[in-house]
Amino acid sequence: MTAVTVNNIIKRYGKKKSVVTALHGISFDVKKGELFGLIGPDGAGKTSLFRVLTTLLLAEEGSATVDGFDVVKDYKEIRKRVGYMPGRFSLYQDLTVKENLDFFATIFNTTVEENYDLIKDIYSQIEPFKDRRAGKLSGGMKQKLALSCALIHRPSVLFLDEPTTGVDAVSRKEFWEMLKRLKAQGITILVSTPYMDEASLCDRVALIQSGHILSIDTPQGIVQQFGKKLLAVKAGQMLPLLQALKEHPAVADAYPFGEYHHAVMKGAGRQELEAYLVKRGFEFELKDAEPDIEDCFMGLMRDGR
């Protein structure tokens, strides 16, 4: 069963002379009950794609369905059954928490009581503040309220556009835990994020950059596709070390990666590299590293360039 199908979607903005193509023929499917991540930096086309799927924008070419309905022809049906949380938490800042929730419930022809079980887990965390105006909530609380509002009509597909942008690491963790519990309730979730580390929390991800999909797979599948040897190196002098790594012929790419530098190897060549670093006078620690999504993303970007 597929919840979302996307077929060669092309989206352009602007007229005649200054046309910007935001999506260059994007295709993928999302299965029912899947937690699907759209991972890419700002300006990659994530929001455009979400807007096409939520019937807010018309694509120039291609077709797409949500819950079996065409995004152009059957937009009314889609609007009844999807939940959407745009990038900026779209709440009425001058309404209280409870007023916001009641309002969204009514607009979607339901009541808070009817679907309380679905949002209870999330809403109960902000319920103590139900008479506070939404504008006075912290970022994490706004995020929870916006999610409650997007869920109040028990949507079959939930679109979350960068729900964790600008939110601190703790709130981000909590948010992903909430998404997992929602998924367990059978809701299909499409979530976009610029944070590569969040990819591993999805069932499947699409890596997107400049309107192109770089890769679609499970997080494990994407990591397996990396296909090159990756080494982690650290030394007292990190900046010269990076320079030295880049200069070595066996190294395809080297870049800082947290505490270590990652060196993507062209072939094997670990011993050679160690000998070279010793010769250059570095006191270093070198070990094999498992690539993560960020390594893969950079690898795919490099290949694409």
């Binding site: 942008t165 590569m196 993303f297 970007m301």
Partner: peptide
């Protein structure tokens, strides 16, 4: 103040 928010990983490193 959060200079690299939303920037792709390659550019993020160039920024650093």
């Amino acid at each position: 103040d959060e200079p690299t928010g939303g920037v792709d990983p390659v550019t993020r490193r160039e920024f650093w």
